[in-house]
């Protein structure tokens, strides 16, 4: 059995956001609203210092598919809605989820409300009980009054919500979520099972994302981890796990972090 993980090369990553957009199209996630990001692939952006001594970091973030996943431990239903697959992925079963948000509370990389907690991101987002998903494509108001179409009109012409919906099938999750359930990155298991790479990996123009089997010493991820000193995130504030610290045993690694310093003239 493989144990899937990801390595992100920070020196290759240009912070372009292609992965985040790719994920939104592949997984048909809705727009950020009411403290929920709905970004399965997201970023920690940090600007520090004072000109000209500034440092800007863009760190791609996603579900860490933790080995000791806090979300899974917290899920109260049986069999767990948030559960581990043998291949190491943390997968959410939509059928069994009751929307109690215990997973969101427990995951160190998630916040119940990113606006209130001022968190950079949240791995798990929640679809409110009383809101329909993709409100933008249900709204009949023209985007620019008297000039453009409305979201609802586009969806109707395209015949789906969202109009660009990627149709895929998976035994645990649907390609579009419903009200009253959480959602998060699934490592694109629906693609991986077909021998494809997760869509964020496939669309990164810089080749900064490496995905593969951490158990296989010859896989690209294992080679990268051998060649470089890797770090793991400890939470969604951008703090890293200290050497020896295990946390929830995240399976997303970052290599080749860097610091840019202005050259003294």
């Amino acid at each position: 059995m493989p144990k899937y993980g990801m390595v992100i090369d920070l020196q290759k990553c240009v912070g372009c956001g292609a992965c985040a957009l790719a994920c939104k199209t592949e997984n048909n996630t809705q727009d950020r609203a009411k403290g929920q990001t709905f970004n399965w692939a997201d970023f920690i952006y940090k600007a520090e210092g004072k000109f000209p001594n500034v440092k800007f970091t863009a760190m791609p973030v996603l579900c860490n598919h933790c080995t000791d996943a806090a979300c899974v431990k917290a899920c109260p239903v049986t069999p767990k809605a948030m559960h581990k697959h043998e291949n190491g992925m943390t997968i959410h079963n939509m059928e069994r989820c009751i929307g109690c948000r215990q997973c969101q509370r427990a995951c160190p990389y998630s916040s119940e409300d990113v606006d209130k907690s001022k968190a950079a991101y949240s791995v798990i987002s929640f679809n409110d009980f009383s809101d329909e998903v993709h409100p933008f494509y249900r709204d009949k108001k023209e985007v620019v009054a008297g000039c453009t179409a409305s979201g609802a009109e586009i969806a109707q012409k395209a015949g789906d919500i969202p109009p660009h919906r990627t149709l895929y099938k998976h035994s645990d999750y649907a390609s579009v979520r419903v009200a009253g359930k959480v959602e998060k990155c699934m490592f694109c298991e629906h693609r991986v099972l077909n021998g494809e790479q997760p869509y964020c990996v496939a669309s990164c123009p810089a080749g900064a994302r490496i995905f593969g089997d951490l158990n296989d010493p010859n896989s690209e991820v294992s080679k990268a981890l051998k060649a470089h000193k890797a770090v793991q995130l400890a939470n969604n504030k951008g703090e890293l796990l200290k050497p020896g610290e295990k946390g929830t045993q995240p399976n997303v690694y970052y290599i080749r972090g860097f610091k840019v310093t202005a050259k003294k003239a």
């Binding site: 009751i98 929307g99 109690c100 948000r101 215990q102 409110d128 009980f129 009253g180």
Partner: peptide
Amino acid sequence: NCFACIGMCPTGALKI
């Protein structure tokens, strides 16, 4: 007002 109990309730007796 975390409303988590709404998800827990099997019958829909709780609502926002």
